[in-house]
Design a protein around this nucleic acid. Structure first.
Lengths: 191, 191
DNA sequence: CCATTAAAATAGCGATCCCTATTAAATTGT
DNA sequence: ACAATTTAATAGGGATCGCTATTTTAATGG
């Protein structure tokens, strides 16, 4: 039998590279070295496996990124490190380019609408996490009281999505970090 | 027989909504009201039809957007209107959300690598157009001589891609324009 | 009006999609 | 060691994938 976490890791990698619609159950079983019935008894369905693979990957990445955001660092410094960490994740040698979530299942067949809602919800949650950190900065006096933290969070969310798209198209790590540096000049009070 | 341009318009609409991998030839023939052999004799293949549908759509949109960029407007004003026009395109009532090109075929099956290269090249060309306009602005003294126009173009390219992704997730026009306004504060010399 | 050409519809090719009923193998308990 | 239970592999179901050979229909020319 296959170790569950090993299977999720392999599945996540395939979904990351090829997307949900571009990955077949045959691809998955072959890569895991199992037979179709094992996949279905272990993970339920292709969609359920995708959900679990996303959860599995996010649980691994998000603790570190959450630490960066929620650390005692000033909000601007925390945001900078957070974005740099994402840029590194988008351009890991030997791993698929881009982010597994940021640019996943945007256009899709009708039958995959529920999968698209799933990734959209993850993106929304990610931006809400950013917004919560910015709200805290307002409360603590690090940002002006009238700051539009929602737009600020969605703006850096857009940068994260744009970085993922450009990484998929072959952009290198240094390029993405130049984007970040420029995006950070939009921070309230900078320059 | 089907009018060629009408067919391309219908195909573009489907590909826009569902993506390349999410659109089947059965979807296409049904929407066009033709039989499969007609599709293949008229357009060659699914991939070739996608290419022609992209060209068809871009030819229609790009003339207006090119006019905005190449008009006599100051570069900052031209860029603002250009981005606003894209935000409007991402949120047209009765049309699929997002941009047909900006966030297309990012993750994909291996067999569709050539299609992905195609959309990547279109995105790159779009950013090169922006860069060329910025270079002109440097030559004309509108921007400082040491301006990194390449990064500037890719930054607004990232914003365009982020807007498309968020539109796919349901973002409204006003939200996208707030993103643009914030992104424009990163313009050299602003604030 | 018929013969010839051109167009469109039918039918279906081999392959693959996601998924599962059934069979075979391995493990466990006694 | 044998029976009971669990696990894995085979085989394949029903549908759809992109695409095309063949037939039928329609349009054209003499």
């Amino acid at each position: 039998m296959l170790d569950r976490d090993v299977g999720l890791d392999i599945a996540a990698r395939l979904f990351w590279e090829r997307g949900y619609e571009g990955t077949s159950t045959a691809d998955l079983t072959k890569a895991m070295g199992i037979n179709p019935p094992t996949l279905y008894s272990t993970f339920g369905s292709k969609e359920e496996l995708y959900r679990q693979a996303l959860d599995f990957s996010i649980a691994r990445e998000n603790s570190r990124r959450s630490d960066i955001l929620q650390s005692g660092l000033p909000v601007y410094e925390a945001l900078s490190r957070y974005l740099y960490d994402i840029a590194d994740g988008d351009t890991q040698p030997g791993k698929p380019p881009g982010c597994m979530v940021s640019t996943a299942v945007l256009q899709h067949a009708e039958e995959n609408a529920s999968v698209a809602r799933m990734t959209a919800a993850l993106r929304e949650a990610s931006m809400q996490t950013l917004k919560a950190r910015f709200d805290r900065a307002v409360e603590e006096g690090e940002l002006p009281a009238q700051t539009d933290t929602d737009t600020l969070a969605r703006f850096y969310g857009a940068i994260i999505q744009g970085m993922s798209a450009q990484a998929c198209d072959g952009a290198c790590n240094a390029l993405l970090k130049r984007l970040i540096d420029l995006a950070l000049t939009a921070w309230p009070g900078k320059r």
